[in-house]
């Protein structure tokens, strides 16, 4: 999408965009929706303690917001916002956060993933543990879903559309 003619007056500009871009409605609505989806993802994540929810579901919802962004604004734009290296780091970081909690509980003298030893009070130890674990799950699931989308999306079919 190239920029409209700079000589246009300001009142003409939106029309120029609309004429060049048939998806303006989609763009406007998804610009409104994407932050909401992301916030809803975080809500599902942090409310997982009190109701149905948690890292898995929240991760998928968060990834859905990025995937919607990629669908509407193009894969390249999405890759600028969430570069593939970041996604790759995120996948590993999620696993490491999860496993790191286990390692900390090892170091504190408990069994692997025994959250009770994370704090003097076993109950708040369980609390800390599950928060760290769910963050790891959120991180890993979001990154993996986006990575799968990137992996399939960035494959260029080497044959034309008629062949399909």
């Amino acid at each position: 999408m190239s920029a409209p003619d700079p000589k246009m007056t300001e009142s003409e500009l939106p029309h120029a965009y609309a004429a060049r871009d048939p998806h303006v409605l989609l763009r406007v609505i998804s610009k409104f929706l994407i932050p909401l989806i992301a916030i809803f993802g975080f809500y599902v994540h942090f409310h997982g303690e009190y109701s149905a929810g948690g890292g898995f579901q929240a991760g998928v919802i968060l990834a859905a917001s990025v995937i919607l962004y990629a669908l509407i604004f193009g894969l390249d734009e999405a890759k600028r916002a969430f570069p593939p290296w970041l996604i790759r780091v995120g996948m590993s970081l999620g696993v490491l956060l999860y496993g790191g909690t286990g390692v900390v509980s090892f170091l504190k003298g408990g069994e692997f993933l025994n959250y009770s030893v994370l704090n003097e009070n076993a109950i708040s130890g369980q609390h800390y543990g599950i928060i760290a674990i769910e963050l790891g799950v959120l991180c890993a699931v979001t990154s993996v879903m986006i990575a799968i989308f990137y992996a399939f999306g960035s494959r260029q079919p080497e044959t034309s559309d008629e062949d399909w």
Binding site: G110, E111, N114, S116, V117, A122, I123, Q126
Partner: peptide, 9 residues
């Protein structure tokens, strides 16, 4: 009651 470590739930 379920025992986990030193605490029980």
């Amino acid at each position: 009651s379920v025992a986990a470590g030193d605490a029980s739930y």
